[in-house]
Amino acid sequence: MTAPALQAFRTGDTPLPDIVILTHKLTRAYDMGGEVVRALQGVSLQIRKNEYVAVMGPSGSGKSTLMNLIGCLDTPTAGEYWLNTQKVSDLDDDALARIRNKEIGFVFQTFNLLPRATALHNVELPLIYAGHGARERRARAVHALERVGLADRMEHRPNELSGGQRQRVAIARALVNEPSILLADEPTGNLDSTTSGEIMQVFAELHRQGQTIVMVTHEHDIAAHAARVVTLRDGLIATDQRQAA
């Protein structure tokens, strides 16, 4: 089943309010020592609120590049990127940092927790950059940890937690600012299959609660948890399919 036809987008348009992510002919080229590598060659993609999308593709297909662009870690060479009806493709560094802080929750393959900080402090981190006071930070971080079922592990450091628990701390950190999208890059890549299953359950629950999720993976059984699978090949969208959850 292919994705339902979305309203065609032309340069100069503004996306509909329920479109969280809209890319229009998104292009990203790298200059590798004189040779131009075109990692993305014009990707047009629309993702609605509360969609659960898996991005797949072989290495070199451009999925990491797309991920970085969607995550506002990178800016496109050409094309447009609208996040929550705001055009972010031409924002400056500081504005992008603010978007990452408010709108995007990252979950990484290697968790990327601060090793010397407690789970609670790790989750508080985005709130520090959002400028919230200590009391509010703590309350929100506690709530986020409760959502991922780690209320009893808040004062533990990452090395005192299992892999699955670490990833759940990372998910709590991603959720703490109530972002528009949860952006997960191979979230189960460093976990065994049982733990992977647990993390996928957490994702499913978040999706059920209304969270928009974009997940990059190369594992088909992980991608199977998503409601929609976008496959990239050679910097272009090859397939875009909806599937039964």
């Binding site: 560094d93 500081d94 940092a97 802080n101 990252f106 950059y129």
Partner: peptide, 16 residues
């Protein structure tokens, strides 16, 4: 370096 990258991803600006 990784920590800095992470902080930036989480919304730290250059000046932070």
């Amino acid at each position: 370096t990784r920590e800095i990258g992470l902080r930036k991803a989480l919304g730290a600006r250059r000046r932070d």
